[in-house]
Design a protein around this nucleic acid. Structure first.
Lengths: 187, 187
DNA sequence: TAGGCTTACCTAGAGGTCCTAGGCAAATTA
DNA sequence: TAATTTGCCTAGGACCTCTAGGTAAGCCTA
C-alpha cells in the first residue's frame, strides 16, 4: 500500500492548521492520524508523543509570529513601529487562534531559547526609536509584550464582552498609552 | 457502605485544589473520583460532564480572586490602590496556578456575566482616584486588566526567563508605568 | 418504628485517546 | 539484486468520558 509520506514537519504543519480549525485543546494524535488516513501508531515514528507534537506546534507558531511581525515593522520607528508591531501581533492571534493558544504553553528554556531570543530582539527593535537603555529596555519590552498578550488573550476569552464600549477603541487607546509611557519612561 | 457525601460544591472545591496541585489540564473526572474513593460514574449525579466541572472551577476561581482583591484594596485610592490590586492579583495567580489557569477558559456570556461584572466593578473601584470618566474609564480598566494578566501569564509561561533582568524589578516598573499613564490619560 | 420515597453510589460496558511491541513491505543503498 | 533502513501496520494495554440500569442508604410520614 502507498505511503502517506509523513514527516515531523508535515505533521506539525497539519497540527497547526487543525488547531486553528478545531481549537488547540482538540489537537490529538488520533485526529491528526485520521487527517492523513493512517493509524495512530504510525505517527510515533515521527513524534515522540502527544506533548512533543504540541511543543513543535508552539515553536512553529512562535517562529511564524516573529516572521510576520518583523516583516510588518519594516523600516518604521517610534509609534509607527509600535502600532505596526501591535497590529501584526493581534492580527496573527485572530487569524490563527489555535496557533496562538499553542504559543502560551510553558516551554522548557532549551526549547524556547531560540524563539524567545528572536522575540526579545524583535521587541527591542520596535523600541529603538524610544531612547531606552538596559535594564529599562528589558522592562519596557516586557511591559509592551504583557500589554499586547494580555489584551489579545482577554479579548479572545470574552472578558471584554460585558462592557458596551467597543473593543477597537480600547485597543487604540491602549496603543496611545503605551506610546506615551515609552516616550516618557520614568527613570 | 457509607456514602462519601458528594455535592457539586464539594467536587468543585476539590477540583480547584487538585488543579493547583497537578495542573488544570490534569483535572479529570477520574482523578476527582479517586480522590473521594468513589467510582467515576458517581460524579455524574452532581456534574453534567467534565466540561461542566471545569466551568464550575473557573467560576469559583473568578469569585475567589475578586474577593481577595477587593479585600486587599480596602480603603486605598490612587497608586496605593493600584499596587494593592496588582499585588493581590499576582499573588493569587502564583499561589493558585491551577485556579488561575481555569479562569482563562472562554466562558459563555451567561455563565461569566456575574463574575465579569464584579471584576469590572472592582477594576473601576481601583481607578476611582484617577479622575477618569466613561468611556475612557472602560478603556483604562481594560488596559490595567490586560497588563496585569499579560504580565502574570507570560511570567508563568516562562517567557521572561531568557533575559537576566529580574522579573520583580520589571513588575515594579510596569506598575509605575501604569500609574503614570493613568494620571496623564490622553483625552 | 415500619413503610415508602428519594437519591447517592454502584456495576457493566461502549467509545475515545495515548502509547508500546513487534511485524511486514516499500524505499533506499550497496 | 541483495541488504538495510524505515514507513506504516496489527494487536493490545492503560486511562478517561459518559450512559443505562440497579441496589441500598438515609429521610419522611404514618
Amino acid at each position: 500500500m502507498a505511503r502517506a509520506g509523513l514527516t515531523a514537519d508535515r505533521l506539525t504543519q497539519a497540527a497547526a492548521d487543525l488547531a486553528d480549525e478545531v481549537g488547540f485543546e482538540n489537537v490529538t494524535v488520533s485526529a491528526l492520524a485520521r487527517h492523513f488516513g493512517v493509524k495512530d501508531a504510525s505517527l510515533y515514528s515521527h513524534i515522540r508523543n502527544a506533548q512533543d507534537l504540541r511543543v513543535r506546534l508552539a515553536v512553529l507558531a512562535l517562529a511564524e509570529l516573529v516572521d510576520r511581525v518583523a516583516e510588518s515593522i519594516g523600516g518604521r520607528a517610534g509609534k509607527d513601529a509600535l502600532v505596526a508591531f501591535a497590529s501584526a501581533y493581534r492580527r496573527y492571534a485572530h487569524e490563527h487562534p489555535g496557533r496562538y493558544a499553542a504559543m502560551q504553553m510553558a516551554l522548557d528554556p532549551d526549547t524556547a531559547a531560540d524563539s524567545a531570543l528572536k522575540h526579545a530582539d524583535m521587541t527591542r527593535a520596535v523600541l529603538r526609536g524610544y531612547e531606552l537603555w538596559e535594564p529599562e529596555l528589558t522592562d519596557a519590552a516586557r511591559l509592551v509584550h504583557s500589554t499586547l498578550h494580555g489584551f489579545v488573550s482577554l479579548e479572545r476569552s470574552g472578558a471584554f464582552h460585558s462592557q458596551p464600549r467597543g473593543v477597537e477603541a480600547s485597543w487604540l487607546r491602549a496603543l496611545d498609552a503605551l506610546d506615551s509611557v515609552l516616550r516618557a519612561w520614568p527613570s
